[in-house]
Amino acid sequence: MEEPGTQNDWSLVRGTLAGRRQDFMALVEKHQRPLQRFVEQRVGDRAAADEIVQMTFVQAYTHLAGFRAESSFKTWIFSVALNLCRDRARAEKRRANVTAEEVLEKEPQAGPSLEETVLGGTVERRVAALPDRQRSVLGLRIWGDLSFREIGRMLGISENSAKVSYHHAIHRLRQWLGEERA
């Protein structure tokens, strides 16, 4: 069974491949908000998320002919965005390692920690501390507004496993939120 809204996406994909750029911009307009929300909570920075979202759509346009009908367009662009987020995180980590070494050579300074600077506020920090699969499932579900079926397909796990990962993520966040309130 196809996910709701998928049929319309297919006609827009076909329209784009037939040369109608306005069809691709309709796809952008339809998916840019959940994608930006998902990427923003993932990278913790609006400008960086904007860059990744733009890159995701440009890459989708360029490779649209290679897009396979096995998944929805939405699942596909979220997969591309998630890969870009992970690549960015790896690059950030490499940079952070270098920066941390430089900082250690200098005198300690008051102010936000490196982790706070990179990850932003408390919620982002808490979510970022989750294991990768739980974090991905949570982000795709809450901010990406994807179904567990779509999430499972994206991450190469069963729908049931996606739900269990989501359950674990919520359980852990509940503990943290409880500690915060106490």
């Binding site: 750029r21 691709f24 911009m25 952008v28 307009e29 840019q32 908000r33 930006q36 929300r37 923003e40 909570q41 609006r46 904007d50 979202v53 733009q54 759509f57 440009v58 346009y61 360029t62 506020g121 408390t122 919620v123 979510v127 579900r141 809450i142 901010w143 919520i170 966040l173 509940r174 939120l177």
Partner: peptide
């Protein structure tokens, strides 16, 4: 918890942000 997370996350950008994002994508393509 999902509702709480939604409340704590920073507010959504305005329409100018979304329009600029679309323009950026369109210009690159």
């Amino acid at each position: 918890v999902p509702a709480e997370l939604g409340r704590r996350i920073r507010p959504e950008p305005d329409e100018r942000f979304w329009a600029a994002q679309r323009r950026g994508i369109a210009d690159t393509i």
